[in-house]
Amino acid sequence: MEAEFAEIGTERVIKGFLTYRVTDPIMLAKGNLFGHSADTPISLPCWLSQEEVDYYVTKFDKNSGFSGGINFYRNFNRNWELMAPWVGAKINVPAKFIVGDLDRVYHMPGIKEYIHSGEFKKKVPLFQEIVVMEGVGHSINMEKADEINKHIDDFFRQFN
């Protein structure tokens, strides 16, 4: 995967990840990553500037590129093993959950049902609210920064 990402370039990968709007699993077919051929321009949405893209590109290129994120998925089973001591543990602090309706993680099999059925609340007893923002993907803090900040501020103000 790192070789394929290197072939198309860090900038294209960053743009592809941040602008991906398909709620199905990410398709990273060779030569057609994120549903675009390598020569198809990726337009930036209003919430993402070229300056921001350039910043991310610089940081990824300076460090280990995408290996860290990719290695997380390569090590998925080990991560479960390491977290085993906390299976069944509850999160006992007030919480609010905010997600975009276009976030592909929200559309993974079983996730919506888990969140909305009450199962999530069993693990987070002080859970207060689910907010599903329309037209928003995985980069919710970038896409709707003002709304996210308001949700966070409102949440914390209740504790004054």
Rank of each mutant, 00 (worst) to 15 (best):
H138W: 07
P109M: 01
K90M: 08
K121M: 09
N149Q: 07
M133H: 03
D24Q: 04
V87Y: 09
I26R: 06
S37R: 14
V22A: 04
Y55G: 13
M133T: 11
F60D: 04
F156L: 00
E51P: 00
K121G: 14
I70M: 01
N32Q: 06
F97N: 08
E143C: 13
H151C: 03
K122L: 07
I148Q: 04
V87P: 02
I26N: 02
G118C: 10
E81N: 02
V132G: 04
M83N: 13
F17Y: 10
G68C: 05
F72S: 14
M108K: 13
I14C: 09
H116E: 15
G137N: 01
V132D: 01
I152F: 00
K30Y: 10
W80Q: 13
G65C: 08
G35E: 08
Y73D: 07
K150F: 12
S43V: 05
A145F: 03
P125F: 08
G68L: 07
D39N: 13
L102D: 09
F34K: 04
H36K: 07
I70D: 00
L126D: 09
V57S: 05
R74H: 15
E51G: 09
V53P: 05
N79Y: 14
L126A: 06
Y56T: 06
W47M: 01
D54R: 11
L33E: 06
I130T: 15
C46N: 11
L18N: 03
Q50F: 03
F120L: 04
G68P: 05
K96F: 07
L48Q: 02
N149E: 06
K144L: 05
M27G: 11
D54L: 06
E119S: 07
V87M: 01
K123P: 00
W80H: 01
G88L: 01
S67G: 02
